[in-house]
Lab assay of single mutants.
Amino acid sequence: MEVRTIKVFTTVDNINLHTQVVDMSMTYGQQFGPTYLDGADVTKIKPHNSHEGKTFYVLPNDDTLRVEAFEYYHTTDPSFLGRYMSALNHTKKWKYPQVNGLTSIKWADNNCYLATALLTLQQIELKFNPPALQDAYYRARAGEAANFCALILAYCNKTVGELGDVRETMSYLFQHANLDSCKRVLNVVCKTCGQQQTTLKGVEAVMYMGTLSYEQFKKGVQIPCTCGKQATKYLVQQESPFVMMSAPPAQYELKHGTFTCASEYTGNYQCGHYKHITSKETLYCIDGALLTKSSEYKGPITDVFYKENSYTTTIK
């Protein structure tokens, strides 16, 4: 009895394709271990004539594949690729409408935090270190965002349907971005203890939790000093293409032309909904596939993004 075979390709990165001759009487799992086709788990399936010449994702289970996976995804987590594939199996079914010149995501599976993050990423200057993220990001900007969303979920250790947080998501993504040249110098002034300067680099240099107003941050924000008295913390120097200011959701007025974009969060910790506000020729609110415009805006804002380049204080 002759062994019926077909020729397929296996890959971990969709760049390096490895030619395989597979036995049609055995499952993919018996031949390769966990195997995925377009995100779908085909591990328990036997090869079919229609699979001839198709590319299958496999887990990096030998040295060659491990090197290829690390170079593309910059992670050695053995569960990463499987999590990416199972997320992709959902995100490829989502709709990605162009809204006001940006790629958004039609609401499904509690994905409003991903839509808000995706919209924000198209408006701030950011370059990702893992080629996987950078490639998928370019495709997302062009309207094909399924891979990018699935990668975000995998890097953030999230599953489809789980509630997510924009600030946490951005923080994970910033860790995989090139923020080497970003720098922030802060000064804390206390009447009792004097003053202390701190220099922050990388992710810490672009994120701040405690106030939404970048102007206020430049002037000074009140913080408790270690001595128990009130101290003032203010920005001395900022070198970065953008800054992200966050605070627990509270009524906040966004003035046209003073910011790049913002995240609105309605609801409580267990259950809520994100919308995205962007400042173009007027203010726009993007909620999944829905767009509304207004000249002014007041609502429960939790993150505001500002364009920056270089700032030095005039406070002496």
Rank of each mutant, 00 (worst) to 15 (best):
Q196D: 06
L173W: 02
I45C: 10
C156A: 04
R83W: 06
L133T: 02
S213V: 05
Y155F: 07
A40T: 11
Q196N: 08
E308T: 12
P130G: 09
T10P: 11
Y72S: 11
T103D: 08
Y214H: 07
L173C: 05
G39H: 08
Q238N: 02
Y137L: 11
V99D: 00
D287R: 01
I152T: 09
H74A: 05
T312S: 11
S294A: 14
Q30C: 12
Y284F: 08
S86M: 13
Y311W: 14
L65W: 05
L186E: 15
D287E: 04
E253P: 07
M24N: 00
T64C: 12
L173Q: 03
K280I: 08
K191Y: 13
E71P: 05
I277E: 06
N111H: 00
G299W: 02
T19D: 12
T199V: 14
I301A: 00
V22C: 14
Y137A: 05
G288S: 01
V243S: 03
H176A: 03
E264A: 10
R141V: 11
L283R: 04
V206T: 04
C271V: 09
E2N: 13
L235I: 03
I152Y: 07
R167H: 14
D62P: 06
P131Q: 03
Q30H: 13
I105A: 04
V236F: 07
R141I: 09
N268P: 06
L153S: 13
T258I: 08
V42D: 02
F56S: 05
L81Y: 00
G257D: 06
C149I: 12
K183N: 07
H273I: 00
M170P: 05
C271Y: 15
T159Y: 07
V58E: 02
N178T: 06
A136V: 03
D63A: 13
E71H: 13
A40K: 13
Q270L: 15
S181R: 12
T169W: 03
M26F: 11
E264N: 08
Q31C: 14
F70E: 11
C261S: 10
F217T: 07
C225I: 02
K201P: 04
L173F: 00
C285Y: 07
Q195D: 11
E144S: 11
K54N: 12
G53N: 08
K307V: 15
V189C: 09
K280S: 12
V236R: 01
P78E: 12
T76R: 12
L17A: 13
S310R: 12
T226Q: 13
P130W: 02
F305P: 01
Q31T: 14
A136H: 10
A140D: 09
E52C: 12
L290D: 14
K93H: 07
K106H: 11
T211Y: 01
C225N: 07
V221I: 14
P249V: 15
A87R: 03
H48S: 11
S263H: 14
P300A: 07
A132I: 05
L121Y: 04
A87I: 00
I45A: 12
M245K: 01
T76M: 14
T159K: 14
Q196G: 03
L212T: 12
S104E: 08
D62F: 03
Y113H: 09
G164T: 00
S213I: 02
C193Q: 02
G267F: 15
Q31D: 12
Y265N: 07
I315E: 15
F259P: 05
F305W: 04
K92F: 05
G267Q: 15
F174V: 03
Y57P: 03
G272Q: 00
L212H: 08
P130S: 04
D165V: 04
T199F: 03
G33Q: 10
D13E: 15
G194P: 06
I277N: 00
G53E: 13
K7A: 15
A205G: 04
T10N: 11
T159G: 09
E308Q: 05
Y265P: 00
T35P: 14
W94V: 08
C227M: 01
H18I: 15
L119I: 08
T5Q: 12
Q238G: 07
P249Q: 00
E144L: 03
G39C: 14
I105H: 06
T27C: 15
R66S: 12
D63W: 04
Y172N: 13
P97E: 06
G299L: 05
V243W: 00
F80A: 04
V188S: 07
T103M: 04
M85C: 09
K92Q: 05
Y155S: 00
T120I: 14
V203K: 13
E125K: 12
D303V: 07
L163V: 11
T258M: 09
I45S: 13
L290E: 14
T314L: 15
S79Y: 14
H51C: 05
C271F: 15
V203W: 14
S310I: 14
C112I: 07
K233R: 13
G267A: 15
T278R: 06
T5V: 14
H90F: 11
N111Q: 05
D165S: 15
L173N: 03
S246Y: 00
V243Y: 02
T169M: 08
K46D: 13
A177V: 07
A150C: 07
Q270C: 15
V67S: 14
S86W: 15
C193P: 07
V21E: 12
H18V: 07
